[in-house]
Design a protein around this nucleic acid. Structure first.
Lengths: 166, 166
DNA sequence: GATGAAAAGATTGCTAC
DNA sequence: GTAGCAATCTTTTCATC
């Protein structure tokens, strides 16, 4: 069964935009804004959750308020052919790793890491470098966030080209 | 007036954890789980919003479901001293840029970019490279997400060292 | 998709510790 | 200062059209 690209109309997109801006907006209020009844909005939200257009609702926490004041991106270089699966297993064991992806270019993976401070980050980096398959790392420590939604507020509720395919 | 690090107790942390897992969890349900009344939970949430521990509630959208199927990290090298402020202004004009930070190391900035496909990404990259102050770029195209919460689900609701400072 | 009714949840004022 | 309780209002949810 091939993957079915979900079909979203203008109303779905406006519902998404409202929920991305504030996940606790009531269906009643969204309905008033877009001209639908609350049950109609709920049915559309339920459908989008089912289609996994919406995968969840979360709370944005300012990391610094909880003591995570240091952030870095770290390129990982592996010796021989360490399979992505192995890197994933290891990355999962570090609560400090908030994102891990494999990438094109010289590096095998790129990790997004949060730590309390530079000392904590260095300690995490040492542990990562000591992992058996890691041969080298290259760190970019984050200095300033240039965009307002610094803690990556979620994906845009718009479509790449403003229209919907399929 | 110096910045006051918020003091969060165990109950606050459990409320945060519940709301990060699902921003639409009712105060009643959170209260039942942690042994507080709904109004008490609400008052704590209101306080954390005031302290900007909580900066918002958002919906996690699977980017691929909306047609954003390509993702990349791009290092930006600037000629002379392009101030971060200039880079921020430019980054803001691209809907494809979901995060932009200044970093240590050779590059002046690191952009996190989403695009419909490789063609769209290339087009965005061309436009960025044509910006007056950009001298060079270096792209890492994302191949696979290694962690489950791929679209960066938000910051951890735990503290870096399990305890609360100040 | 709307309407209407019942259940669940949010919110506020008040009291007590 | 923070919690609980109770009353009120809002929202969700489900059946029906």
């Amino acid at each position: 069964m091939p993957y079915q690209q979900p079909v979203l109309d203008e109303l779905d997109r406006r519902i998404l935009a409202a929920l991305v801006a504030n996940a606790r907006t009531s269906f009643t209020e969204i309905g008033q804004r877009i001209g639908l009844s609350a049950p109609a909005v709920k049915r559309r939200v339920d459908r989008m959750r089912e289609q996994e257009v919406i995968t969840g609702f979360t709370t944005i926490v300012r990391p610094a308020a909880l003591g995570w004041r240091t952030e870095a991106y770290v390129e990982i270089f592996c010796d021989a052919a360490a399979p992505p699966r192995r890197i994933a297993e290891v990355a999962r064991t570090y609560p400090e790793v908030v994102a891990a992806v494999t990438v094109t270019g010289g590096a095998d993976a790129l990790l997004h890491i949060r730590a309390a401070d530079i000392q904590h980050f260095e300690e995490v980096l040492e542990r990562i470098r000591a992992e058996p398959f890691v041969s080298r790392t290259n760190s970019f420590i984050v200095l300033t966030h240039l965009l307002p939604n610094s803690p990556e507020a979620g994906s845009p509720a718009t479509l790449p080209d403003g229209t919907n395919s399929r």
